[in-house]
Nucleic acid binder design. Structure first.
Lengths: 401, 401
DNA sequence: CTAATAAGTCAAGACAATTGACTTAATAAG
DNA sequence: CTTATTAAGTCAATTGTCTTGACTTATTAG
């Protein structure tokens, strides 16, 4: 009598969905192309001139878009280009790593306006939660000091931390990231900040950053190979970040390799963790980053041996990524020091043969991405901005409110 | 003066896009749930009762949907359930393999109504094109003999063949699949049949079939590991088939493995091609399929050795797929004989530890899919049906006409 | 027998994109 | 210098699709 099994269906849409999508398409077009006139927008988006005019007018009223000086280009009335207003929206990005946490305030076009960093006490969330909430509050108030009304235009707080999420842990993590994952982080942050909070893993955040302001800007298919304390891949598929069924897509650090008769996760052979171990360095040392940068840039032998080993694994990882995802390009990025990433890129080449070798390629198979300790926090902040302003399927549907 | 770089932007949408999407959502809901009343549909899709009524009325007029006997379920007016009408649409699916080609006619709900097979002469497309066109014509006319007006409701021709596509070939393929890829297949078929023609690789077709009528029915994230002459993965991501930048996503047969000091593509170690070689069998032998099925079902030693080797590689492939895609489930399917696939599933277990091991899993990590020589052709036919009737982002946009 | 409940319809209204004519402002051609 | 041509952008009426709220119908619980 009672229908027990729930009905599964996709959500429908309506006028508001249409209008929301078109608004997002206009914003996206301006983000990708820098500045465009109404006529340009109409041609590029397949919308009518009139519709574009209406949307632009509304966006201008909302302070998201601003007209520039008219430009004459041949016959006909000069066109008035429009640009995104950087101060049109802000987001906070928060990176929670093993021994450090970073927060940034970012504007609509992805410029970092405020940054702050704090050490994370060992002991996990019980002591760390306060540090984090204080850091977010600090960044927010500094932003409010720079920009009028920033709080009115705050779209959310994006958090990035090492994954994978929701997996029965191995228990051998000395940095207590596991404890962080069990901690009700989203609830704590929502309650403590009053903001909309979103979570992604660090590789996904790096990819989100590359898509907003980096090498993946405007690309529909790109994979960011992220070398941090661990190693992961951030996936841009069909122009959107792909998360998988449980938000763990791209967590290739856990991939098991067979070599020398042993089974080892990739992470143990190519990641900063493996480098620290190779150098017998203390990961909590605040000078480590610059120190490694120095070693890498002057080609120190201790680091070269590691680079040689890691490069073999990375070369193979890139081959696999190309084979499996068929992306337009692979971007190597990381919280690793820039000099190290550059050395790695050289050491990785030449790439293994793969289906990515095709006639008429426009983009390099492998490109360097941001190698900036702040890029993950930036990507974390880009999350809420994407959700609020970028065109994606879910944003059209009624079930997304 | 002249703006040389083209403007890149996503397409906008309009009322028609909304309406087309809602129609597709209703069809999809009926496909997944079997039968639903208007009120059920309204609740499940977030559309209003009135909108659902209008759409159902239109679909009924178009012959895509049919009312069932009203059912009393407690208080209130009895509800009238609706179902998809199988004869509402048809598609032809065509599989082009190394030495054989198969064509099927399929209806709206994915039932195979007609099947036909032909040997492909060596010599590639120059001689094979006619065979294929004749086969398609045969299937179409047989369908027309069974169903009135089938041509009026024909939505297209889907083609599946081994990938990868558009890659500078290695030239060592004795089956001339490379020549097929250079051949203007789509143009020839479009001209020769007058139908809308689409192309996917065989693993993608297998996944499309699993999504329409198999283990991936109604799932949003599933990967089909397809063991055929080669080996590939068909990717269902966010409820849609993922193709990658060049239609080659999932072509894992080309993935290079390092073992025994050598570099070998996965394909050479786990695929029917490797089995044929192991057995010194002739791939063109038409009895090979049943013969291998016999050998596998009675546990013949010659085949068991191969299974042991292949299972190692497949176990690792599944681990990697889980790690990289984070799917809800992995489906093992193939053009391999059913008994062989079943033996492989047993031999593969137990699976390697991965992020797929999580508390509260609903689905098995690995499930058997269709192991039917006709499943690829079925999946090929499912392609045009999906394009015509399933909800997806592109279908909402103005640039999709 | 009556009240409650649920399915489904009706008709008016709201919303957002479309259409085609119009205005404005520039350059090219004579 | 004048005129034709071209392109950007606006105006006002129209169209297509979903929404709203009241209404009708059919059933069961009490």
């Amino acid at each position: 009598m009672n229908d027990v099994r729930p009905i599964r269906a996709k959500s429908g849409t309506n006028h508001e969905g249409t209008s929301a999508h078109n608004r997002r398409v206009i914003i996206d077009a301006l983000r990708i192309n820098g500045e465009l006139s109404r006529a340009d927008l109409a041609r590029a988006t397949w919308l009518t001139k009139q519709t574009v005019s209406n949307i632009i007018e509304e966006l201008e009223r909302d302070g998201l878009v601003r007209s520039q000086e008219p430009v004459r280009k041949g016959r006909g009335q000069p066109s008035t280009p429009y640009r995104l207003v950087p101060e049109g929206a802000f987001a906070i990005g928060l990176q929670i790593d093993r021994h450090v946490t970073r927060a940034v305030a970012v504007d609509l076009i992805g410029s970092v306006l405020v940054r702050a960093e704090a050490g994370l006490p060992t002991g996990g969330p019980s002591t760390g939660a306060k540090v984090i909430l204080d850091l977010v509050a600090e960044v927010r108030s500094k932003l409010a000091g720079i920009v009028q009304q920033s709080e009115k235009r705050m779209v959310g707080l994006g958090v990035a931390m090492p994954g994978p999420f929701g997996v029965a842990g191995s228990g051998d993590d000395p940095w207590m990231m596991e404890a962080w994952q069990k901690f009700p982080l989203l609830e704590t942050l929502t309650a403590g900040t009053g903001l909309d909070v979103g979570l992604q893993n660090d590789a996904a955040a790096a990819a989100t950053a590359e898509r907003m302001v980096g090498a993946a800007h405007g690309l529909d298919h790109a994979v960011c190979l992220f070398v941090g304390y661990g190693i992961g891949a951030g996936l841009i598929l069909n122009g959107e970040l792909y998360r998988g069924a449980n938000g763990n897509a791209g967590e290739i650090g856990m991939a098991l390799l067979f070599a020398d008769g042993k089974t080892t996760p990739l992470e143990h052979r190519a990641s900063l963790a493996s480098l620290y171990q190779h150098l017998s360095a203390d990961p909590a040392d605040p000078d480590l980053h610059t120190c490694i940068n120095d070693l890498a840039s002057r080609g120190d032998q201790s680091i070269e041996t590691w680079i040689e080993t890691a490069a073999v694994e990375l070369r193979w990882s890139i081959h696999l990524i190309e084979t499996v995802f068929d992306p337009q390009t692979v971007i190597l990025c990381g919280s690793a020091p820039e000099a190290l990433v550059n050395r790695l890129i050289v050491a990785i080449g030449p790439l293994l043969p793969s289906i990515a070798e095709r006639p008429g390629r426009m983009l390099p198979r492998l490109q360097p991405g941001m190698a900036d300790p702040w890029s993950v926090a930036l990507g974390a902040a880009a999350g809420p901005i994407n959700r609020a302003f970028d065109p994606h399927f879910a944003a059209i549907l009624k079930d997304s409110l």
